[in-house]
Simulated scan of single mutants.
Amino acid sequence: MPLLPQLTQSQVALTKEVQVLDERGRVSTISIPAERPLTVYLDKRELVTLMTMGGNPEALVLGYLRNQRLVRRIDELASVQVDWEVGAAAVTSHHGIAQIEERTAKRVVTTGCGQGTVFGDLMDEVDQIHLPVDARLSQSALYRIVDTIRVHPSIYKKAGSVHGCALFSAQGDLLYFVEDVGRHNAVDAIAGKMWLDGMAGGDKVFYTTGRLTSEMVIKGAQMGIPILLSRSGTTEMGHRVAEQVGMSLFSRCTGRHFLLLTHPQRLVFQLDFAEPANEAQLVKA
C-alpha cells in the first residue's frame, strides 16, 4: 500500500438559492449550482485554475495531476491542502517533480467543458495503453447502471447545469458518483478517488452524462477502464481513440436504448431485457 498524501477535508456549499421572475411576473426561488475558481499550485508553481462546484476538491486535484500525467505515483505527493478563503489548492511533493517545466510547457485546448486543457501531446501515451480484453458487461447490468443513475439523488435534479460521472462494478454496483460544472472535473475527481483507494479499473464501468470526446476516452483509458457509457454521443476522434485502445463505447444510454460503437465483443446480449426497437430509437450517435 503506497504512502498516501495528507488531505484537507474542505467543505463548501454546492448550491445557492436565488430569486427568479417567470414569464407571468411571478417570483419564485430556485437552486443553482455553485461555480468557484480553484487555483492549483504544485510545489508553489501555479499550474491551472479549475472552475468547480467544490464538492470533491482534493480528489479533483489528485485526479487532475494523474490524468494530466504530471504525477506518476500517488506516493510522490506529501499533501493536498485546499483553502476556499483564497480559492487555492497547494500540492506539495516529497522530492519535487522531475522535468515539471518541460512537461507543462505545451498545452492542448480540447473540447472539454469546465476544464478541457491537457499538458503535452494528447496522444503521447495512447499506444502504451492496454485494456483488459476479457472484460464483459451484460445487458442487464447495463440497464441496472442506467436505472441507478436515473434515480440517484443529484445536484442536477435540484439545480441543473452540472455534469455527472460515476464508476460502477461490472455487475452494475455504484462505487462513486461525482457531479461538477464540467465533466472533466467530475472524471478527474473519480480518478483521484480511485488513486486514493488503490482501486484498479480493469473490471469497472464508467458512466458520464456528457459526450465521449477524445480526452474523455483517453482519461478513461489511463484509469484502466475498458467500458464507457454515456447518455450523450461521441465525437469522431473519441471513437477513433476507443478503437485504438480497445475500449467499448456505449452512447445514447437512455431507458432500454443504447448504441454500442466499438469493440462489441464485451457486451453479453440478453435480448429478453430489451424493448422492441422503433423508428424513434434509430438515432445517430
Results as ranks from 00 to 15, higher is better:
D173E: 15
D173T: 08
D173A: 12
D173C: 07
L174Q: 06
L175V: 15
L175E: 14
Y176L: 05
Y176T: 05
Y176E: 13
F177V: 02
V178C: 06
V178R: 11
V178T: 09
E179L: 10
D180Y: 06
D180E: 07
D180F: 09
D180W: 01
D180K: 07
V181D: 00
V181A: 01
V181L: 12
G182A: 09
R183S: 13
R183G: 12
H184L: 11
N185D: 01
N185C: 14
N185V: 06
A186C: 09
A186I: 06
V187F: 02
V187N: 10
V187M: 14
D188S: 15
D188A: 14
A189D: 04
A189Q: 01
A189V: 08
I190R: 00
I190H: 03
I190L: 08
A191Q: 03
A191N: 03
A191Y: 06
K193R: 15
K193Q: 15
K193V: 03
M194V: 11
M194D: 08
M194I: 10
M194K: 13
M194P: 12
W195I: 11
L196I: 13
L196H: 01
D197P: 01
D197I: 09
D197L: 04
M199Y: 04
M199R: 15
A200H: 12
G201V: 10
G201A: 10
G201H: 06
G201L: 05
G202E: 13
D203W: 01
K204N: 01
K204M: 15
F206E: 06
F206C: 03
F206L: 15
F206Q: 08
Y207W: 15
Y207P: 07
T208R: 04
T208C: 14
T208A: 13
T208Q: 10
T208D: 00
T208P: 07
T209Y: 01
T209Q: 02
G210L: 00
L212G: 05
L212Y: 04
L212E: 01
L212R: 03
L212P: 06
L212D: 00
T213D: 14
E215W: 06
E215M: 14
E215D: 15
M216E: 06
V217A: 07
V217N: 02
I218G: 04
I218W: 08
I218Y: 02
K219H: 14
K219Y: 11
K219N: 13
K219C: 13
G220R: 08
G220E: 02
A221H: 09
A221T: 12
Q222Y: 15
M223R: 05
M223S: 13
G224E: 07
I225L: 09
I227F: 11
I227W: 01
L228F: 15
L229H: 00
S230K: 10
S230H: 09
S230E: 00
R231K: 14
S232V: 01
G233K: 05
G233W: 10
G233M: 11
G233P: 09
G233T: 10
T234N: 08
T234R: 11
T234W: 02
T234K: 09
T235W: 00
T235R: 01
E236T: 10
E236D: 14
E236A: 14
E236N: 12
M237K: 11
M237P: 00
M237A: 10
G238M: 05
G238E: 09
G238D: 06
G238Q: 03
G238P: 13
G238K: 06
H239M: 12
H239G: 02
H239R: 14
H239S: 07
R240C: 04
A242W: 07
A242M: 11
A242H: 04
Q244K: 15
